[in-house]
Design a protein around this nucleic acid. Sequence first.
DNA 1: AAACGATTTGACCATTTGCTCAGCTTAGTT
DNA 2: AACTAAGCTGAGCAAATGGTCAAATCGTTT
Lengths: 222, 222
Amino acid sequence: MAASRRQQIRRSILDAAIIEFSRNGLEGTSTQAIADRAGLTKPQLHYYISSKEELYDEALQFIVAEWKHIFFMSTESDADPAHVIVSYVTRKIRHAIERPEVARLFAREVARGATALSRHWDDLAASVDQSTAIIQSWIDQGLIRELDPLIFQMNIWAATEYFAEHGAQARYLLGVSDGEALDADRLIRETAELFLARAGLSAPDDRNASAMGTSEGGTSDP
Amino acid sequence: MAASRRQQIRRSILDAAIIEFSRNGLEGTSTQAIADRAGLTKPQLHYYISSKEELYDEALQFIVAEWKHIFFMSTESDADPAHVIVSYVTRKIRHAIERPEVARLFAREVARGATALSRHWDDLAASVDQSTAIIQSWIDQGLIRELDPLIFQMNIWAATEYFAEHGAQARYLLGVSDGEALDADRLIRETAELFLARAGLSAPDDRNASAMGTSEGGTSDP
DNA sequence: AAACGATTTGACCATTTGCTCAGCTTAGTT
DNA sequence: AACTAAGCTGAGCAAATGGTCAAATCGTTT
């Protein structure tokens, strides 16, 4: 009904392409491999796409769109810092675990110099600036400790992205077998705590605050 | 005693291979590209190596060796936690910035499932275990806050690794032009602070407090 | 059933892939 | 100078690459 057969196929091609590209990059991926994954023959694939490069571009485009939902600190400017931070970290880690290919392909393209993303770079940079402003305002209001907002964001990005790129390693180290799902909640809790602590905050109240028991947060002077 | 010409060439092949493999992986890298980068013809390259796979393996081997110097928390078990953490973070970030190809290739191989690293996996896992034990002992002694030692380590890894894989992005966001060097000290200071705060520590250490604060840039370069 | 455009297919292209080889040049030893 | 071995080269291999094409099939509409 809604999705024509044609659109369905194009979508499955895109899915296959994202997975393949995320593994070996543009040059390392053969159209044959994409075709195989999508359950098509090579000429059939080329009937639906115009070239590998364009398909790559399309995949990136798709990813940036998805990314924008997750990448940025919320605009609910009135929410308290702890809540915003936890929500951000949660979204990022969830996404990293659930759609590692997307996160990985994005990261790979960024690492390559993001030439194919250059159109979107400004968008992303603008959002980073916006987040920077929010964090800075928290500092100015004395809501959080003094810190470098940019590096703080980079650190968040790094910590969350990790689970997409190194899921296998995380699994192994945590002793989670291949089929099993990662204990996302635990990862999220611990990782969020990292940034809350840096900001001098404690977790937004849900249950008893037992984790913070020792030595009261260490209001140390930097 | 002087490295024979042969060894010199093999070394330059290895260097070239590491760079190329780190960009596009095993399958995405052509022997032609490696030969070009090493300043050799293709048959010449094949005179020195036996196959692409074996060269890849050799590159990984080389990298693991280099990695072991940096990857692990120090064994100076009597050092105080703050010092150990800062030193670890510093080493990791320095390495990530100075030899991004090495860090990237390692990470890439890990992400692939680390099949070619499987021989070394146990070594690495053992070292992680060792670090875990050290951290746990700190907790037991009440030296640092309670936290999950494993996830703590993963977070450190993530935050430091980031600078290798996303150096371009970091440059861009920090407004550092291509030629310029990143202000490693600033990154290190801020990133170390992240983990110190999580552990409930403040930066070490008073006898030489200025060393952390304002040493400004002058690190020995390659 | 005929006609239609939308698909699918096998054969095929030029180029590149990893790799080999016979023969050439060079460098070192006697 | 004569001999040897290490190093280098152009040509070339089979296989895979990205991509094309005319001819065959399919699903619809008339």
